[in-house]
Design a protein around this nucleic acid. Sequence first.
DNA 1: AAAAGTTAATTAAACGTTTGTTTAAATTCT
DNA 2: AGAATTTAAACAAACGTTTAATTAACTTTT
Lengths: 209, 209
Amino acid sequence: MSNDKREHIMEVAVELFSTNGFEGTSIRQLAQRADVNIAMINYYFGSKEKLFETMLEHKASYMRNRIEAVEADQSLTEIEKLDQIIEDYVARFLSQPEFHRVLQQELLVSQREALHQNVISLFAKNTQNVVAIIEKGIRKKQFRKVDPPLVFSSIIGTINQVMQSRTLCNMLMNKASDNNPYQDPQFKKRLIQHLKQMIHAQLLIEKDI
Amino acid sequence: MSNDKREHIMEVAVELFSTNGFEGTSIRQLAQRADVNIAMINYYFGSKEKLFETMLEHKASYMRNRIEAVEADQSLTEIEKLDQIIEDYVARFLSQPEFHRVLQQELLVSQREALHQNVISLFAKNTQNVVAIIEKGIRKKQFRKVDPPLVFSSIIGTINQVMQSRTLCNMLMNKASDNNPYQDPQFKKRLIQHLKQMIHAQLLIEKDI
DNA sequence: AAAAGTTAATTAAACGTTTGTTTAAATTCT
DNA sequence: AGAATTTAAACAAACGTTTAATTAACTTTT
């Protein structure tokens, strides 16, 4: 089986799904853009929905749980772990903006129930780990008595917010509308610094910000 | 013209659009759920897309810019303005979860270009005002030298994050999956408190948190 | 090493549904 | 009576999918 072609189709799929949504993308449109015959998509993936699932699985496997490794690392303090997680998240999201837009869409829309639940439990997994770290920091009296799940929501929500729309992000950052903030290393730095400053100020009791 | 019926259709529309997306919702499905004839939608609104636009406009008019009023209020300090804005945002979002999910979808998907731009400029407007408040606070040396647009992204992003999926929100908050967090006054209180604490800790130089 | 045979890949065309929309007749309201 | 509303039926277009025929790529046989 020509894996190149399969991957090429998935690449085009994530692109189209991210800008037009799943229902808003037709097989014909996809086939034309990928320069393959319409029947090839069903030949390779079985159905449009299977293509979607396969593509998600394929993309998700690229970025599997570094967070668990960070949590287990005994040599890091709790705040260092959070810093590490912030850097990881930002790096991942920025490296695959289209994929993460598709994930967000799938969270918002509960049309394909099974997939919807899959994406939810994927998020839930990461939540548990980060919440556990924050709770540990509180128990050790290194952190203030914050609301752990909402702190996590603020980290992930901030990133999601700027990833939601390139145009909106440029507007926010006062950049030209043809700019691509997600490939701009300065934007990445800025986002990481903001998140760290926010988390440090909110969590740390001693003020060494 | 029977305005009741028009509004009823729009009510069902925002419900279906929020769970199935615009493309994922069919006129027939909508007509059946609203208990009207299929042709009535085109009779009242002209087309499916016009219904969508009209519904957005109708819903948006309910929650027009209190933020501008808050900004103009001379009797409030900058941090008090931000507190007020946080309360306003949370109250609005929680009162219309379906509508805001539709807005978020429209930001993610750039299928209907004109509408997409409309939603963007609606957000952009609010951004400008909040950013201006934060900048003023920095100039007055009441706030730390934070990144104003990203601070705003964190506020709005946190709310969006918990509004994205009821299931995810319940999972996050350790509630039963049939719970409706958006109608729970305790959740509202918790969210507001978290946001205020976050913003205060991050912005205020003196530590009267 | 060439030919025959077998499987995999690719194609254009057609399939039955479903889509949003329109029509023209019937009903209701003023 | 006349205008606004409501209806069931029909419209063409687009949808995801399947089919059956053709080409390409390997394997096996001689």
